[in-house]
Design a protein around this nucleic acid. Structure first.
Length: 1013
RNA sequence: GCGUGGUUAGCUCAGUGGUAGAGCACUACCUUGACACGGUAGGGGUCGCAGGUUCGAACCCUGCACCGCGCACCA
């Protein structure tokens, strides 16, 4: 044993052990080791953005995962924590484009698609590993041999295969529909990527003339006058008596001003959607630039005819054809008219207002606040826009809803016993038993049809739907922690619309669909392709494209010269929803997959740890993908962390500059300190208000732990000696009991994901119980002469510390490993159970009844210890009150209430830091001697010099008052007749005992006052 | 509007029916032989408000107020 430094220095310890763990393969999961005795435990990391840097949210999230993983290893499980990153389409593409713009003054179009993607890869190779390196600094025990990236070749194939599969199942379709268009990044976004924000603007009222009734004017309210050129109708509620009679007539649209009157006539239509009360009750309908208006348009046209095609528009209905008045970048196009053409949409709004005013149509404008959708990435207002995109009807919705336990389901969390008979834990039993029928429940909500150039989603020929039969066994098997998020999840799943999965980007998974080049095939040839055996040729009845076949396959068509691949890529989430199995060697081939060791052993995963903000983006979609592709849920438990905020409760953000750099914190305080500080203030499911003080506390804590071990080391002696029951002191027995209690509490807390509780318990046990009381008390033996007693005390300390270090390991991996070896606890352990590393030491078990009996750990231990502590506290209090502060020793005399072993007295003396503690059953104090009244007897502090009788009287009188008020409280309760009748016996007894104790103290106090004379 | 979380010491939070707690901050004292990244003692709370249930409520029920968050959303 080498002497360890006075203060813990994390920097010299952390890298050393991390390298050791990696080199020794401690993090590497071995599927072959999985057995009934060694169950599998797995987590997949929520893949951080490859462009990302570690922030406090990552620290919280990954520390939790590391705690779960390390705890599972110590429980003897075979653990896979699978790490990786995602390619983050928009963010990464934006970043590289910006770099190119800055360094080369070029756009991505200038350098071309192929070259651009090359640049992104170069960037990724250079900088993409930063966050991974940072996770290592934090101590994360991920299996780096299995690190994955969503753009890995095999992962790309998986994404494409799933696309092709869903396409053939009829769940993916292409259509021209309203999408959330981001004019800044010029791509479509899903509904989830739009954030509603209140915006201050104006509500404009303008008037329009009814064409058939000259001189009759209607007033319309709008926040977007620049879209007037795109209006194709004016809607009123057919039940609105003010306007109903006007339905079928027309109004004159004021803009574009230069058009002749007859080209500006648009119809007045009736639609229930229009609210009488709101605005003027007259709604302008701009179907190409407003979602609700588009739906009105759909309703009207559907009402007028069945399947609508452009050529079928009658004159009567042609007014409904949407007019697109904007370009992709958010500027106005020619159809917006001469006044607005070329202007940005917000500039155009101002000009439109001017124009209306000029025309005398503007009635008023008043300040108005409404919610506007913003692009989450680019932070600019979304433009609802008619656009041709790929959409997905969500699969496996019903089973995904049913599998998550709602409150009151009463299902036990993820017990393996719930698996069907014959399904070994961790084995992909679900493959081949795909719950196909559930797809029927996934039909899109009404109104999600495809109108313009779209296609009806249809079932892949040959796929037979069955009635859902797999819901029963799945129902409620997955647990959310805290459970309330299950409701949010369920609500979203109930109201989902089809998912727009295509993105107008270059960086990402290219859509595996090819279209014939114009003129490449004759109609007959196309017909033959469709009829051929190769089902990559997909029949399409699309007027928009003017073709009727597509090639849909992972492989390019055999005659690529005749085809053009779809230029778009898939939403990043369309790749990450496959994460739990696509990272494990999944191929989609059932036979092959059932023999893939990693997948067999570790899917479904055990726990997922993530933030509630991505329930929709990721969690729900992973569940659907899991059922759809694996026939089984992707994880059994989902733990939702809180959001990390600063100490003022604000979200951490780059713009506010209130987010500390975790790497900086690690450099200053150590990774363990950061982990400790973060976890200590992270209650279950609550937001975390982070303060650097927390990390400082963590550092202090590590230092305390370090020094507690240092103290043990300074006592010398053999490691891990056997404890001799006969030599155990009351303090030894007490700390063993407290240890037992701590093991129970910490184990329970971790099992229920109550991390803050676990940390709190460890803190209390180690600092308040072990250091403050036990270690101090133990000094009585160590400063004494009895060698056997000392040796036994060392054995107790080793027992406690070796358990304690193990309990701390998941939370504080570095310092515990260092101490585990430094203290020599690894020496006697089996190689694979703590000998090599504390990582695989067994998680402490609570003491058995036999052990408790052998060591004499009974109820009296606690009572006696508490009495001692009470005496000590009161004695210290006396010293303070009579100015015998720390520094000065003081001489005490105890008039014991019963027998007190001299060794106990010596402990008391030490805890009181008194020069002496005399035991004298017949002690008669001088008048005015300060007294503390305790269960162990009366403790006196005889003062050598002057005795301040008045001061002592004041003190005792104050005590008496307090005692009396306590007595009153208890007496009042006991005096209540129904109390005695109705209260449980134990409670009644406890109250009586409490009364007796206080009364005894009162008697002591009165006697003491009397003694003052 | 619907849903959801919160309101306890100056601050951040535990406590979910039986004597109101922790850490930080604060005050005083102490560099004593693990640790000043430490120790000892202390001050500080009518547990948001109002009812109800109960022998007993911070805790359960009802209502209200305020602060968050999510979803929806009317031009």
């Amino acid at each position: 044993m080498t002497e360890i430094p006075k203060a813990y220095e994390p920097q010299s310890v952390e890298d050393k052990w991390y390298d050791f763990w990696v080199k020794q393969g401690c993090f590497t999961a071995e599927p072959a080791r999985v057995s009934d005795k060694r169950p599998a435990y797995s987590i997949v990391i929520p893949p951080p953005n490859v462009t990302g840097m570690l922030h406090m949210g990552h620290v919280l999230n990954n520390t939790i995962q590391d705690i779960l993983s390390r705890k599972a290893r110590m429980d003897g499980k075979e653990v896979l924590w699978l790490p990786g990153t995602d390619h983050a389409g928009i963010a990464t593409e934006g970043m590289v484009a910006k770099q190119i713009r800055k360094e080369e003054k070029k756009t991505k179009q200038d350098i071309g698609r192929e070259e651009f993607i090359k640049r992104v890869w170069t960037w990724k190779e250079k900088h993409g590993g930063i966050i991974i390196a940072q996770l290592k600094k934090l101590g994360c025990s991920c299996d780096w041999t299995r690190e994955r990236f969503t753009m890995d070749p095999d992962y790309v194939r998986n994404v494409q295969r799933v696309f092709v599969d869903l396409y053939k199942k009829g769940l993916i379709y292409r259509g021209k529909r309203m999408v959330n268009w981001c004019p800044a990044t010029q791509t479509a976004l899903s509904d989830e990527e739009v954030e509603m924000k209140p915006q201050k603007g104006f509500m404009y009222h303008f008037k329009v003339e009814v064409a058939e009734a000259s001189g009759m004017w209607l007033t319309i309210a709008t926040t977007r006058p620049e879209t007037i050129p795109g209006d194709t109708a004016v809607a009123v509620n057919p039940k609105d008596p003010r306007y109903a009679h006007l339905i079928g007539k027309h109004i004159v649209r004021p803009l574009p001003a230069e058009l002749p009157r007859e080209q500006k006539l648009i119809a007045i239509i009736g639609d229930e959607h229009v609210d009488f009360e709101f605005g003027t009750g007259v709604l302008k309908v701009t179907p190409a630039h407003d979602k609700a208006d588009f739906e009105i348009c759909q309703r009207i046209t559907k009402w007028a005819g069945s399947r609508i095609e452009r050529t079928l528009f009658t004159d009567e209905l042609s007014f409904m054809e949407p007019i697109e008045i904007m370009n992709a970048d958010g500027t106005m196009n020619d159809l917006a008219g001469a006044d607005l053409r070329g202007l940005d949409r917000f500039k155009a709004r101002k000009v439109a207002v001017e124009k209306l005013t000029e025309l005398g149509a503007m009635i008023e404008e008043k300040p108005y606040e409404n919610n506007v959708g913003f692009s989450q990435r680019a932070d600019v207002p979304i433009e609802p826009r008619l656009s041709e995109q790929w959409f997905l009807k969500y699969p496996s919705v019903e089973v995904s809803k049913a599998c998550v336990a709602q409150s009151g389901d009463g299902v036990q969390p993820g017990g393996l016993s719930e698996l069907s008979p014959g399904q070994r834990p961790g084995v992909v039993g679900g493959i081949g038993s795909h719950p196909r029928g559930v797809r029927e429940g996934s039909a899109a909500p009404a109104g999600a049809g495809q109108l313009f150039g779209g296609e009806e989603p249809r079932a892949f020929s040959g796929a037979k739907f069955q009635q859902p039969s797999g819901l029963g066994p799945n129902a409620g098997k997955m647990q959310f922690h805290p459970q309330r998020w299950a409701k949010v999840y369920d609500h979203w799943l109930t109201n989902i619309q089809d998912w727009c999965i295509s993105r107008q980007l270059w960086w990402g998974h290219r859509i595996p669909v090819w279209y014939p080049k114009p003129g490449a095939f004759t109609e007959d040839q196309i017909h033959n392709l469709i009829e051929s055996q190769n089902d990559a040729y997909q029949d399409v009845a699309s007027i928009e494209e003017g073709v009727s076949v597509r090639w849909v396959s992972i492989e390019p068509p055999p005659d690529p010269a005749n085809w053009t691949q779809d230029p778009d890529v898939l939403d990043t989430w369309f790749s990450s929803w496959l994460w739990p199995f696509a990272t494990m060697g999944w191929t989609g081939d059932k036979t092959q997959d059932s023999n893939t060791p990693t997948l067999r052993a570790f899917y479904p995963t055990t726990d997922l740890v993530t933030g509630p903000d991505i329930i929709f983006f990721w969690v729900a979609r992973m569940i659907m993908a899991g059922y759809e592709n694996m026939g089984e849920m992707p994880f059994k438990n989902v733990y939702f962390t809180g959001i990390i905020r600063d100490k003022q409760g604000r979200k951490m953000s780059k713009t506010l500059g209130n987010s500390p750099d975790p790497l900086d914190l690690i450099a200053r305080y150590g990774a363990d300190a950061l982990r400790f500080g973060t976890m200590r203030s992270a209650p279950l499911g609550q937001d975390v208000l982070f303060d650097e003080k927390d990390v400082e506390l963590g550092r202090n804590f590590c230092n305390k732990l370090w020094n507690a071990c240092r103290f043990r080391q300074m006592q010398g002696g053999e490691v891990q000696g056997e404890m001799d029951a006969k030599l155990l002191s009351s303090d030894d027995r007490w700390i063993l009991l407290r240890l037992d209690q701590a093991i129970r509490e910490v184990s329970d807390a971790l099992a229920s994901y109550n991390f803050a509780t676990a940390v709190q318990t460890l803190y209390r046990f180690f600092w308040s119980e072990y250091c403050d009381w036990y270690v101090e008390a133990s000094k009585a033996a160590f400063f004494g002469e009895d060698a056997a007693l000392k040796a036994n005390k060392v054995a107790v300390i080793d027992f406690v510390l070796s358990h304690l270090l193990r309990m701390f390991h998941p939370l504080l991996p570095f310092i515990t490993e260092e101490l585990w070896h430094g203290m020599g606890y690894s020496a006697d352990m089996p190689e694979d159970q703590g000998g090599r590393t504390i990582m695989f030491a067994r998680w402490p078990k609570p003491l058995s009844d036999e052990e408790k009996e052998a060591w004499g750990l009974d109820d009296t231990v606690e009572t006696f210890a508490n009495a001692k502590f009470e005496l000590v506290t009161q004695g210290r209090n006396l010293k303070t009150q009579f100015n015998i502060g720390a520094g000065k020793k003081g001489k005490f005399t105890l008039k014991p209430a019963g027998q007190l072993d001299p060794s106990e007295a010596e402990v008391l003396r030490l805890l009181l830091s008194a020069e002496s503690l005399e035991l004298d059953p017949n002690y008669v104090p001088k008048k005015g001697t300060p007294t503390a009244l305790t269960k162990l007897g009366e403790l006196y502090l005889p003062l050598d010099g002057l005795v301040d009788m008045d001061a002592e009287r004041v003190r005792l009188t104050k005590d008496t008052a307090k005692i009396q008020s306590e007595i009153e409280k208890v007496e009042q309760k006991l005096a209540n007749p129904s109390f005695a009748q109705k209260v449980p016996a134990a409670v009644l007894e406890e109250h009586k005992q409490r009364l007796a104790d206080w009364q005894a103290k009162l008697a002591q106090a009165k006697a003491a006052i009397e003694a003052l004379g």
